[in-house]
Design a binder for these strands. Structure first.
Lengths: 194, 194
DNA sequence: CGAAAATTTGACATGACTCAACTGGAGTGG
DNA sequence: CCACTCCAGTTGAGTCATGTCAAATTTTCG
């Protein structure tokens, strides 16, 4: 299993001894998913959080009208899970589906609690990761309030240039909270403006 | 200083020994603000996170057009800070202003780091608090996408019944991401429907 | 009581949605 | 290699949710 990306990621936040690394590695699982497979389904309990080694996933929920709303995309070096379901071990609100063949490293809920006992530094790692995640979640709320769909699309393209080319436009529209038709109109308008 | 609300809050997440409690209390500051005073101003560094004992605050930013956007309200038993500024100790994006006379207990950035060293359990407390905060931030994003302003207003009233009556309507409109005029129209429509 | 602030109301403008029709690739099978 | 289908993407007409602006009304508070 290729653990280098994970260890490299962790080293940006905390330093682990060799022993701690080996404890850590003993408690995680490597897993490969095919394109289209679900890592998590709405209604199931989210039993693990996944760190992406390669590939791409979308996190979405299906509303009462059957409409799909994409909450986030995840790529290499990102985490994905339904945090609400994970921390309370109750039914998930979201689905996580692979848009490409995807390799992940998974922390299960039980192991995670053990890990925090054995390597308290990890608690710090997760605290810091959560802080960053919360900041960017808040920024997204702010952007959704004060920017038009066009501005949000431009920011998205800047922020996730690789994702923009890898996935269908209707998913990007869903992520931005607009219809595919309207995204299409935004794009043709942007071309005219140049 | 009235520390009971804080200790009571903490006890929902972790158990502290008497000694830990006294270390904790030695590192925090009690502070009273008047109505209208700022706990934090856009551009300053957020040096502390504040736990509210009483009163009410709004967190907002002023955009390029001078428009005010309210990100959140905080009341008794909630935390408030500009997390992004706090964790990186850089200029804050947001203002935090007291809408009523407000009592807080403050953790300064430096003390917080010391505290985590001396009482590692606190790291767990903050991790758990952040998890919850992230979940509710994500839920808010989802709601903003899939619900109309009217539905969001009804949820707000349900979720913060006390706030709804304490503060001017134009601030609620700002929090909901709509204009005060449109909020007014929603309310008159709700009355008609009854 | 009077002034300032907050709220409401109405006319009109616009961003974004819906629905339906059309275009253009990417398979697939004969 | 062509005809066919299927799916993503585009385009246009009409509509709805929400915004803007200005005026009228109500509330707050010195």
């Amino acid at each position: 299993m290729n653990t280098a990306p994970l260890l490299n990621y962790i080293s940006k936040y905390i330093d682990l001894t060799e022993e701690e690394v080996s404890i850590l590695l003993s408690k995680i699982k490597y897993r490969k998913y095919l394109k289209g497979q679900y890592i998590l389904q709405q209604g199931d309990v989210c039993k693990c959080s996944s760190f992406l080694i390669s590939g791409c996933t979308k996190t979405f929920y299906v509303d009462a009208e059957g409409q799909e709303h994409i909450i986030m995309f995840s790529i290499k070096d990102w985490w994905t899970s339904d945090i609400g379901s994970f921390i309370t071990q109750t039914a998930a609100d979201y689905n996580i589906q692979c848009l490409e063949p995807t390799e992940v490293i998974q922390f299960s809920y039980d192991n995670q609690e053990e890990l925090f006992q054995e390597i308290p530094k990890l608690e710090r790692l997760f605290r810091k990761m959560l802080e960053k995640a919360l900041v960017s979640s808040q920024k997204r709320i702010v952007r959704n309030f004060s920017l038009t769909a066009k501005e949000r699309y431009l920011i998205f393209k800047e922020q996730y240039p690789t994702i923009d080319q890898r996935i269908p436009q209707y998913m990007i529209a869903s992520f931005l909270g607009i219809t595919k038709e309207f995204l299409s109109k935004i794009k043709s308008q942007l071309i005219l403006e140049q």
